[in-house]
Design a protein around this nucleic acid. Structure first.
Lengths: 231, 231
DNA sequence: CGCGGCTTTGATGTTCATCAAGTAAAGTGG
DNA sequence: CCACTTTACTTGATGAACATCAAAGCCGCG
């Protein structure tokens, strides 16, 4: 990991409203004392599959991919997610070890809190517990929905779906730089790299998108949405 | 729904050990007072997609399928699950309405508790909250893993996977009656009905399984596991 | 019996993966 | 900064995997 350190400015962190809303000022202060921030450069691995879970981790800034190794040593991308959607949400209280990896797609800052401390907060503060439960349930729900959405679609629909995901959920813009390679898109939607590229070319030839390397501009979002819902 | 009523025998319910382990005897008694049991016959719908969420529901006995309607009015089966794996786990605290349906594959008994009462328990009992959080995270994790496992495999691998799922997870036996139609298997693994049947025939011709209508006997589990991991 | 739904199998066409060859881009060492 | 190497991207051709269509068999139920 690139950098790490302690900063006690949690009072002003946007994250407070997300799950830490039910903590008192004192709790926030103590949370700060139990917290560290780690910075990762693009490409660095934040969590290794198989690593022991002993911290509660969440994204402060940046973008990450969550993925797992398949039996034939390929990568299967579970989700691509941005700040305030937890990293370590999925099984921290249940599993001993991470059964997925996380790596930074852009420069990323991760906040790290000792898991036992979070547990003590949960025990002593029921509203905090409900908040966390709600947040985790929502994130998991989104992942499940995405997985089912993808499974339902054919090649064209999947590529359209993932382009819309970047445009709407991640960048809130019709013009954006892909944070992933073509191969990673393929790993994400479960298709071959060649066919992902072919589909992007088709979209380009049909005037639905413009492509300049990693830069994508969606020029006909209506048609893209139609392709996503049809396929 | 077929039958409903109140019974206060929660003290002896197996479910106590699953999530209600951290409740006192008094809490359990009060839980009983807030609880109702509903019985459903095979085929009946327990939860309708779009219905408002106002109860905490869990399976006491039976077997259910969790599914959603796709855009083209088909069914996509999210998971098939048995007692003590929650029904209403996924988004009860986050969403207003169910975004999936649940129906009984076998005669099923569901316990129903007012959601507000569960929330009050969570607020007042942190250990209970952690227990519930852990359980929900585990269930969600399992659904995500299953969805990814299926997406990763081809037709043969998916059919093998689902047969092994029934044999190992649901019935703990190499000999079992399929609780679903061929079409439902297809909806589960995202393949066409015809090809599911074809694959079952292939397995039969290869001496891997025996088929008598809905009854399946796995005669060569080693080969089936190989097909599941390869494909 | 006879009807309707589920199942089975074959034939056909579409979709997709794979292989191969070539081009562009990006990193590497002098 | 340039030559070299490697990695990512692109496109076409081919074959495998899968969906779809159609026809026939089976089984439960009125």
């Amino acid at each position: 990991m690139a950098t790490s350190g302690r900063y006690c400015i949690c009072e002003h962190c946007d994250f407070r409203d997300v799950v830490f809303a039910n903590l008192s000022e004192d709790d926030i202060q103590e949370l700060c004392n139990h917290k560290e921030e780690h910075s990762y450069r693009k490409g660095e691995i934040i969590i290794h599959q198989g690593e022991k879970i002993s911290y509660f981790k969440y994204l402060k800034s940046g973008l990450v991919k969550v993925y797992r190794k398949t039996s034939d040593d390929d990568e299967q991308i579970i989700t691509i997610t941005k700040p305030f959607e937890f990293v370590s949400s999925m099984a921290i209280f249940e599993a001993e070890k991470y059964n997925f990896s996380v790596s930074a797609l852009e420069d990323t800052v991760v906040c790290v809190v000792n898991l036992d401390y979070i547990k003590s907060l949960l025990i002593n503060n029921g509203r905090f517990a409900i908040g966390l439960l709600t947040k985790i349930a929502g994130i998991n729900d989104k992942i499940i929905r995405q997985c089912l959405d993808i499974r339902q679609r054919n090649l064209t629909g999947r590529v359209a779906y993932v382009l819309l995901y970047f445009a709407k959920e991640i960048y809130s813009s019709h013009l954006f730089d892909l944070p992933v390679s073509r191969k990673e898109i393929a790993d994400y939607i479960g298709m071959s790299t060649a066919n992902v590229i072919r589909t992007l070319s088709d979209f380009r030839n049909d005037g639905i998108i413009k492509v300049f390397g990693k830069t994508i501009e969606i020029t006909d979002i209506g048609r893209l949405e139609l392709l996503s819902s049809r396929g």
